[in-house]
Amino acid sequence: MVEKKEIEHLGDLVKVELKDPEKYIKQVEQIIHYFDRLDTVEFNSDDTLRREVDAENLRDDKYEPYGMSLIDHLNKDQNNFIRAPKMV
């Protein structure tokens, strides 16, 4: 059972103020219930199909400055800082 408190907790985790939490309760519950079938599948392998790459083929450690002043494309103040709300 998914409850209002739980939906609001999920909303808090993903930082979304839910205007109408009730609306989501039923839907999330219904879908999670559908997901529950995964827990009944029997597996004969622990494989999870992750891709692999040889460490040798990773990016070389080389400094290459980005071709443009990226900050000019972002929201910034006159000193080129990004402004965030106060923390407390």
Binding site: L10, V14, K15, V16, Q27, P85
Partner: peptide
């Protein structure tokens, strides 16, 4: 305050995106 601001801004996601983020968090 930071968290309130972000939650307020992100309440502008549409219903399907919000639903999937809630499911994902779950």
């Amino acid at each position: 305050e930071f968290k309130a601001y972000v939650a307020k801004a992100r309440s502008n996601f549409g219903p399907e995106v919000t639903r999937r983020m809630l499911l994902g968090a779950y």
